[in-house]
């Protein structure tokens, strides 16, 4: 029943969900980032170099790549704390494009078994053979992706139900009020951006090892804007929102292959119409709150 094609789609949904969660984290702190694909890319390259060229174990490389992406996210956020709104969005876009274009110039190759392996500019980075060398089936790798995704969601869920999550949402709704309340805005913005970079990094590293080949062109602005759109379609009220967005997009696009060539016309129009009625997505804050009330009412009775 679960053929390889379906598994690829499912694992794709899992990996893209991570970058969507990353864009969502920035969105709830009230900023729009066009640049989350940069952290996805940084971790994809760093993680793959660690496993293929340095021979690191997979989990260490995953943490290493994501950590690097998180540090980069924090750094960029620290540089851009003074600006907000469209200025912030364009600054992140500029950074992401700088990363992508620098990767076109980035070459770092080792000779392994008579073959030159490693990232080589625009030719990309192939032969990321970790899943073949360790005999991991697509099913096993998909489960691994979903394990990481589950841990990530649980982590974000815990954050959202703690004081930290409250502060993040406060920054998003009213930074001035937050600072009057004694919240150190800069510190929390940098923290949120680092977490977002880390989340995107997890997805990027897994993506590289799933496809065994990456090139700078994958991490273009379209990936970033899509991940932003997922949060807005699915809803900004809960961490499940961006995942609903991804499932709708990838699932919908895959299921309407019959009208290939017209799917963007249909999907783009649907999305625009949907945003008129639900400007903060399907599961926005109000609906999440209402569901919660409904649920609590039921359990009490």
């Amino acid at each position: 029943m679960l053929n390889d094609y379906l598994l690829t789609v499912i694992s794709n949904i899992g990996m893209i969900s991570m970058i969507a969660i990353s864009a969502y984290l920035i969105l709830i702190t009230g900023e729009i980032s066009f640049g989350q694909q940069a952290y996805f890319g940084i971790s994809a390259y760093a993680g793959s170099i660690a496993t293929t060229l340095w021979g690191w174990p997979f989990w260490m490389a995953l943490i290493f790549g994501s950590f690097l992406a998180g540090v980069a996210g924090g750094l960029i956020s620290a540089l851009t704390v003074r600006i907000n709104g469209i200025y912030y969005s364009i600054a992140t876009l500029a950074f992401a494009e700088m990363v992508r274009l620098s990767l076109l110039k980035f070459s770092y190759q080792f000779e392994i078994d008579g073959e030159w392996i490693g990232p080589n500019g625009s030719e990309g980075f192939g032969e990321i053979r970790w899943i073949f060398e360790n005999d991991i089936s697509i099913l096993e790798y998909t489960l691994l992706i979903y394990l990481v995704l589950f841990l990530l969601i649980a982590f974000i869920y815990l954050i959202e139900h703690s004081k930290l999550g409250m502060i993040f949402r406060m920054l998003g709704q009213d930074p001035l009020l937050a600072s009057v309340q004694g919240v150190k805005i800069i510190r929390y913005k940098v923290l949120a951006a680092s977490l977002a970079g880390f989340a995107a990094g997890l997805g990027g590293m897994l993506y590289a090892h799933s496809f065994t080949y990456i090139e700078p062109q994958i991490f273009n602005v379209m990936l970033g804007v899509h991940s932003l759109a997922y949060g807005l379609i699915g809803g900004l009220g809960t961490v499940l929102g961006p995942i609903i967005g991804v499932v709708l997009d990838i699932g919908f696009l895959e299921s309407i292959r019959g009208i290939q060539g017209y799917r963007m016309i249909v999907f783009g129009g649907l999305m625009a119409v949907m945003l008129i009625f639900m400007p903060r997505g399907i599961l926005d804050e109000k609906r999440v709150h209402r569901f919660k009330k409904f649920w609590e009412g039921k359990t009490h009775v």
Partner: peptide, 16 residues
């Protein structure tokens, strides 16, 4: 944000 994202959705549509 919603109008920006919806203008992006229309972008995809126009390109196709």
């Amino acid at each position: 944000i919603a109008s920006m994202v919806s203008s992006f959705a229309i972008w995809m549509q126009l390109e196709e």
